[in-house]
């Protein structure tokens, strides 16, 4: 299955992916209208260490502990994609407590959000990848890292 991967060496730490993510998932067609002057709730986050930066979003785990832990049956695996049903989520933070990658966070309304690879929104493929100026995020098929 195709997933989103990062190339640490290429990441500029510019946070564009966060804006592209928030925009793609806003349901709006105007970027300024969607983002300008408002707090944004991206499903990808740039992690910054001493000398490195890279973007982290849901790994779409083969054995997803979030799905097994959700108290509301709101998380599920569909064709390998880990999806969230925002109508079911009650905002209990159990998934936040267990996800080893910190890939879930509350959105504007308090229910959790996570990357669903833009398969359901107008972008159709990961907007973070499409918009990255330095190819520091890629969308491709890989096996386990050795």
């Amino acid at each position: 299955m195709k997933r989103v991967y990062v190339n640490e060496e290429w990441c500029l730490g510019c946070h564009l992916c966060e804006y592209n993510c928030a925009f793609a998932n806003s349901g709006l067609s105007d970027m300024a209208l969607a983002l300008k002057g408002r707090p944004i709730y991206p499903r990808i986050r740039v992690e910054e260490g001493e000398k490195i930066s890279y973007a982290v979003s849901c790994r779409h785990c083969e054995d997803p502990i979030c799905v097994k832990s959700c108290i509301a049956g709101a998380l599920s695996k569909e064709d390998g994609v880990i999806r969230i049903d925002s109508d079911r989520c009650v905002g209990c933070f159990t998934c936040v407590l267990v996800c080893p990658y910190g890939a879930l966070a509350p959105g504007e309304t308090g229910v959790m959000q996570k990357c669903e690879l833009c398969l359901q929104n107008a972008s159709g493929e990961p907007a973070c990848v499409k918009g990255c100026p330095n190819n520091a995020i890629v969308y491709e098929e890989r096996g386990a890292a050795l």
């Binding site: 299955m1 997933r3 991967y5 990062v6 640490e8 992690e47 910054e48 260490g49 490195i52 930066s53 890279y54 982290v56 790994r59 785990c61 083969e62 080893p100 990658y101 910190g102 890989r142 096996g143 386990a144 890292a145 050795l146």
Partner: peptide, 20 residues
Amino acid sequence: AATTAAFSPEIRRKKFGGAV
């Protein structure tokens, strides 16, 4: 702060370099 950037490059490569 809970961040994966605190992991060694080796662990990060395992976690982020392939399917998990």
